[in-house]
Every structure is written in C-alpha cells, then in structure tokens.
C-alpha cells in the first residue's frame, strides 16, 4: 500500500508559484537598485560635470582640489570657489542657479562621497601626489565623466598590488596604512 505525494504537490503548487515569483521579484529589485542607484556613482545634489571642467575646459585637478599635494585630504572646493567663476560664467544654467541658491543661503553643498575609505585606513593624498601618482590611477578618467563614478575597487589587495609593483618603501607594512 503506497501513499502518493502527487496530491500534496498539486495542493502546494500555488504556494510554490508564489514563492518563485517573489524570488524573481527579489532579483529584479536587487538588480534595479544596482542599475539605477549605483553605489559607485551616486546622484549628487548638483549635477556637476567633471567632463566640462576637467575635460572640455582642461582645468587642472589641483586648481580646485588644492590640498591634494600638501594634505592628507584632497579637499573639496569651497562654495566660494565655485561662485568666484560662476558669478560670470554660465550664470543662467539651471545647475548654476542651484549653486547660487546655496551661496545665497550661505549653505554648503552636501556632496556625496564616491571614493570613501574606511576610517581605519590612513590614506594621505600628499604622499601619492608628491610621488607622481596621477589622480586617474585611483579615480579613473574623471575628465571624461559626466557624473563621477568609482572605477577602482579601493580594496586592500588593490592598494598592495600597486605598492608592490612600484616597490614602495615600507609599502607592505601593516602600520603604513593602519595606524
């Protein structure tokens, strides 16, 4: 005397189908988030284009990021710095109007970090700039980007690879970066 599992399967069919559809939805949702809200290229409060500034107009990186060669932080330009040019340049564009609103309110622009290292990593910009590492080595071809995107993985192995190939002095020492 045998017991058939077929009736049970038949009874479960709607549930299985529901779960399957749910799982497919999960995948779609996950993919959509990565595709439309990428962590490597977040939407910024102002659609600032590095392509126009650094690419088309060939403004050197360190014209705005003045601290890179002498501080651990590259420094994001002050609102004042943007305004000094844009008082005259392209004043009627909608994005520049947005900038001028921040300036009128004397509020900083809350840029979103694209290249963010964990707090336990000591990364001095000045060391790298002074050693002649091009900005693009880590930041990618920023001068071609309409919206900045993180190209490099910024993981420890990736850092160490570069330290190895360039035979950086003490470049593989833990305390060089974790101090």
């Amino acid at each position: 005397m045998g017991v058939s599992i077929v009736p049970a399967l038949r009874a479960l069919k709607p549930a299985v189908l529901t779960i399957a559809v749910g799982l497919v939805g999960l995948l779609i949702g996950f993919w959509a988030d990565a595709a439309f809200f990428p962590a490597t290229s977040p939407r910024q409060p102002i659609d600032f284009s590095h392509k126009i500034h650094a690419g088309d107009n060939a403004i050197p990186c360190m014209y705005c990021h003045v601290q890179a060669r002498r501080s651990i932080a590259a420094g994001v330009p002050s609102v004042n710095k943007c305004v000094t040019c844009h008082r005259i340049v392209a004043k009627d564009r909608p994005q520049i109007r947005k900038l001028m609103e921040y300036w009128a309110d004397q509020q900083p622009i809350p840029w979103i970090k694209v290249h963010d290292l964990p707090d336990f990593v000591y990364f001095p910009h000045k060391r790298h700039v002074q050693a002649g590492v091009a900005c693009q080595t880590c930041h990618g071809p920023v001068e071609t980007m309409q919206r900045v995107e993180r190209v490099a993985p910024l993981k420890m192995g990736w850092c160490l690879n570069c330290h190895k190939t360039h035979e950086v002095q003490n470049g593989l020492d833990c305390w060089t970066c974790h101090k």
């Binding site: 749910g22 949702g29 959509a32 988030d33 809200f37 977040p42 609102v79 900083p108």
Partner: peptide, 27 residues
C-alpha cells in the same frame, strides 16, 4: 508576491551598501 519581492530586493541591495557619507565643503 512579485511586488513584495522587488521591494525586498531593493531594500536588501540598499542595506548592504556602504553607508552614504557626505563631503561637506566650506562655504
């Protein structure tokens, strides 16, 4: 089920992202 799945997928993807940090310039 599909709707809940998509929502859950979005939330999951958001939750495993590095928390958003800001770069606040001086005025």
């Amino acid at each position: 089920a599909g709707g809940v799945g998509v929502g859950a997928g979005l939330l999951l993807a958001e939750s495993i992202k590095h928390p958003r940090e800001h770069l606040i310039p001086y005025v």
